[in-house]
Design a protein around this nucleic acid. Structure first.
Length: 546
RNA sequence: GCCCCCAUCGUCUAGUGGCCCAGGAUAUCUGGUUCUCAGCCAGAGGACAGGGGUUCGACUCCCCUUGGGGGUACCA
């Protein structure tokens, strides 16, 4: 009975789920599913200031999209369990294993500075307060935290991912805070209590927690809790080696900010004004590549410098969804980021991954997130995907892109579009290449470069061809991809024009761009009437740049 | 500064002392296919960070150096 594996994912709802968190969740989920165990979800919202219900909703939705289902019907919210934590903390205090500490943040910072100047690590140890001092602090109404009396000794634990014993010397441990001035427990305390109460057997988490584990062990020993098995996952990095989620987006926005300033002859101060951010903040940011803006500031700067959300590299699970990656591909790719079944096996279904998963296949070193490979995986999955799978994927993609005109398409139309777009890499490409099929004939926006290059170049050669092919198309009776191909190819042969010289002008006329699905299928789907109307409109375009 | 972790092609990795002058994927390059984009097909180049040990034998074990990452919060 006690051999049953119980794992958990415990996000703190301070933002949406990013790929690092998703991978942690995935590995915990895999560990549970592989052994027929349980996977539980808990919301670590002890940081009242940063936690939001909105991000809880978002994280849950992303997990559902990925198919990482959890087994507890009732979610555990730490913020709702303060009474439980309080009881245990008060008991620790009564037993002399925890105590109130009265230093202000400033006082602590000053002590750290002193240690820093002496080139020592700052270690907090219990100050010797007299009864009288304590009474005075309390009388002053001075705020206090509760610190745990961390037994000073060497701590060691086995890490299943690293496959080794982690040792921390006694002089490295300190009395850490377990209850904050606002009355909330710290992460370190709540995590220990909840893991024990939920019967968690295996804790997989990011490597940033590696040394925190000794604090948790200290607490477990004081409270008489069993120690779960720990495994600390390597970090996922950006291509430039920075931590994933941090730098890539900032870098791109900064780049565009510089371009914007250069091209529009504006100043950083103008940018600051238009983005409604203090000018000092913007100049501070722009003058050093090592500096970064906050997410909220990014969102203000982006529209000013002409960037849209999906111009930025994807970091959040939701970004990948909104760009049209398939969740099972994300899972496959994420699983491979730091784990391998051994041998040459790479493309796996979720079921296979569950079957093959094991802790000792997890790597120890940090991995850089490689978008090209993910793209290749997605391309392959799209090519292999059954029609219904792709249709469902497309519907899901459209549901998170409600502004797309393709939301108007029927299932049959979508199936058709999907088929025409064989070779797609992500569903967003399908949308971008085919959306023109679902907008009104008068709403087609011609791209200036396309007009120039395909229609006007060489004395309006394209326009001329377009005028001629219009007549041919008017006479086409069998308006199917096949019938159209026959008619157009015949025309090409007769007039000595390459197919490209004819297809491109038609493409621009019906889509407004130089890129579309194969032309005959496209025209067949658009229908004779709409095709001719769009060609009319294009033919009427001025022959030279106005 | 102090503490901790890590180290195979550009990237993700296989490899657990001889099967490896290192395999796969992706990216790159070359050629082919094509009405655009994408795709597809064929082929090529590309790595054991450096230095010491241990051993008959090290990519594999040990040590040092270097490099990368994490922690050093009343954030998680």
């Amino acid at each position: 009975m006690n051999s049953k594996v119980i794992t958990r994912f415990a996000p703190s709802p301070t933002g949406y789920l990013h790929v690092g968190g998703a991978r942690t969740a995935l590995f915990s989920w895999l560990l549970a599913r592989h052994g027929g165990g349980e996977f539980l979800l808990r919301i670590e919202d002890t940081d009242l200031a940063r936690s939001t219900e909105e991000s809880v909703t978002g994280v849950l939705e992303d997990l559902r999209w990925l198919g990482l289902n959890w087994d507890n019907r009732e979610l555990v919210y730490q913020s709702k369990r303060v009474a439980v934590y309080d009881r245990i903390i008060n008991d620790l205090i009564a037993r002399g294993m925890a105590y109130r500490a009265y230093e202000t943040l400033e006082e602590l910072a000053a002590q750290r500075r002193i240690a820093d100047r002496a080139k020592r690590a700052y270690i907090y140890r219990r100050p010797n307060l007299t009864e009288e001092q304590i009474r005075k602090f309390e009388a002053e109404g001075r705020a206090s935290v509760v610190r745990f009396v961390m037994p000073i000794k060497e701590y060691r634990f086995h890490d299943v991912v690293l496959g080794k014993e982690i040792v921390l010397a006694g002089n490295q441990v300190q009395d850490f805070v377990i209850r904050k001035t606002d009355g909330m427990p710290t992460y370190h305390f709540a995590v220990v209590v909840d893991d024990a109460e939920m019967g968690i057997t295996h804790v997989l988490r990011g490597q940033e927690h590696l040394l925190n584990t000794v604090n948790h062990i200290g607490l477990q020993e004081a409270l008489g809790y069993p120690r779960p098995i720990y495994g600390h996952l390597p970090v996922i990095l950006n291509t430039d080696g920075s931590k994933m989620g941090k730098r890539d987006r900032d870098k791109k926005i900064r780049h565009h900010a510089h371009l914007w300033i250069k091209n529009t002859k504006n100043t950083p101060a103008d940018l600051a004004r238009m983005a409604e951010i203090p000018a000092e903040r913007i100049t501070w940011w722009l003058e050093d590549d090592g500096r970064q803006l906050e997410g909220a500031e990014h969102r203000k700067v982006m529209p000013v410098v002409g960037l849209k959300e999906n111009d930025l590299p994807e970091i959040l699970v939701h970004d990948f969804r909104a760009n049209g990656y398939l969740p099972e591909v994300m899972l496959n790719f994420l699983a491979l980021l730091g784990w391998s079944p051994g041998g040459d096996k790479e493309r796996m279904s979720v079921k296979e991954i569950v079957e093959l998963f094991s802790l000792d296949g997890i790597g120890k070193s940090n991995a850089k997130f490689n978008r090209e490979k993910l793209l290749a995986f997605n391309t392959e999955a799209c090519a292999a995907g059954p029609e219904d799978r792709l249709l469902a994927g497309m519907r899901d993609f459209l549901s998170v892109n409600p502004q797309s005109p393709m939301n108007r398409a029927s299932d049959d139309q979508l199936r058709n579009v999907l088929k025409m777009n064989a070779g797609m890499r992500i569903l967003r490409e399908v949308e971008e290449k085919s959306r023109f099929l679902f907008v009104g004939d008068e709403e087609i926006e011609y791209q200036p470069e396309a007009i120039e290059k395909v229609l006007r170049k060489n004395d309006g050669q394209g326009l001329k061809a377009l005028g001629e092919i219009r007549e041919v198309l008017r006479g086409v009776v069998d308006w199917s991809a096949h019938g159209l191909e026959e008619a157009v190819k015949q025309f090409c042969e007769k007039s000595g024009l390459g197919l490209g010289k004819v297809a491109q002008p038609i493409r621009v006329a019906v889509s407004g761009t130089a890129v579309s699905p194969p032309i005959f299928e496209t025209l067949a789907m658009l229908g004779k009437e709409r095709t001719l109307r769009r060609i009319e409109r294009a033919v009427a375009l001025p022959a030279a740049r106005p």
